[in-house]
Simulated assay, not measured.
Amino acid sequence: MHLLLLGDSLFARHEGKQLPHIDYSLCQYRPDVVIDNWAVSGDNSADLLSLLRRTLLPAADRVFVFIGANDLAQHKQVFLGEYAQNLTAIVAELKKQFSAVQICLLLPAPVDETKQLYRTNRLVTYYGDQVRRVARQEGTGLLDTVALFEQSNLPMADLLKGSLDDGLHFGSQAYDLLARAMLGL
């Protein structure tokens, strides 16, 4: 199985591992998986769209797009309508090389509002609604990270505690949940 990961720091962060933590977690369940992780910390949907318009992507069986944490950040916010347009254009670019069923969009992850200064779960909901709409309209897969974390029976504060402990970047328990969901386990 060959996976292509596109997104921001939530896919890019190492969290103490030698490689991005999501790659590490995916390999724990599927040691044979090949991962091309093109996520870039700090990127928003416009940055990802720009990358896709100028770059030939590697072949992959599945493409996961986890973008939005920086779009919804109040200190550098990409307006909701522009975010939706960017997501639609991202999927259009991906469809030049992949079928809709190979593409999976991830909703922005929940945040710990007691620690996160620039993001709220209300904004996560609004931007997540746009991801749902684009996935439905374009026929792609959808992974609801908010529901995944809420249904895990693990305390949300523990899931959202990564090495930065900033309420946004999560740690091992959340990456484990995410990897299992991405692999359909």
Score class of each variant (00 low, 15 high):
A59V: 13
T88L: 05
N86S: 07
A179Q: 08
R180T: 03
T114S: 14
G139D: 02
P20A: 06
A46N: 07
L49Q: 05
F149R: 03
H14W: 04
H75R: 07
C27M: 14
G171Q: 00
S163E: 14
A84S: 14
D8E: 12
L3I: 09
R132V: 14
S9L: 09
A147K: 13
A92T: 12
E150A: 12
S41D: 10
H2N: 14
A179W: 09
V146G: 04
R136P: 02
L154A: 09
L106D: 01
P110N: 11
L105H: 08
Q137H: 09
L160K: 07
K115S: 00
Q74S: 15
A174T: 02
D43M: 00
V124W: 08
K76P: 04
T145V: 15
V131Y: 08
L87M: 12
N44M: 03
A174F: 10
T55C: 06
P155G: 08
S163V: 02
L10Q: 13
Y118K: 02
M1H: 10
Y24E: 04
E15W: 02
I22T: 08
T55I: 00
V65P: 11
G167K: 09
L143D: 06
A12Q: 15
Y29C: 10
L154E: 10
H169V: 10
P58T: 05
S152C: 10
N153R: 14
L160G: 02
G171C: 06
N153P: 00
V146W: 12
L160I: 04
H75C: 03
L6S: 01
L6P: 09
K95P: 07
A39Y: 04
K17H: 12
T88N: 09
E93Q: 15
L57R: 03
V91K: 08
Q18S: 15
L80D: 05
D23V: 11
I90E: 04
T120A: 03
R133Q: 14
G184T: 01
E113D: 00
V78W: 07
F79L: 11
D43E: 12
M1W: 00
L52N: 09
G16Q: 08
V111F: 08
L57C: 03
P58C: 07
T125M: 07
L154D: 12
L87Q: 03
T88F: 04
L106E: 03
V111W: 01
M156I: 13
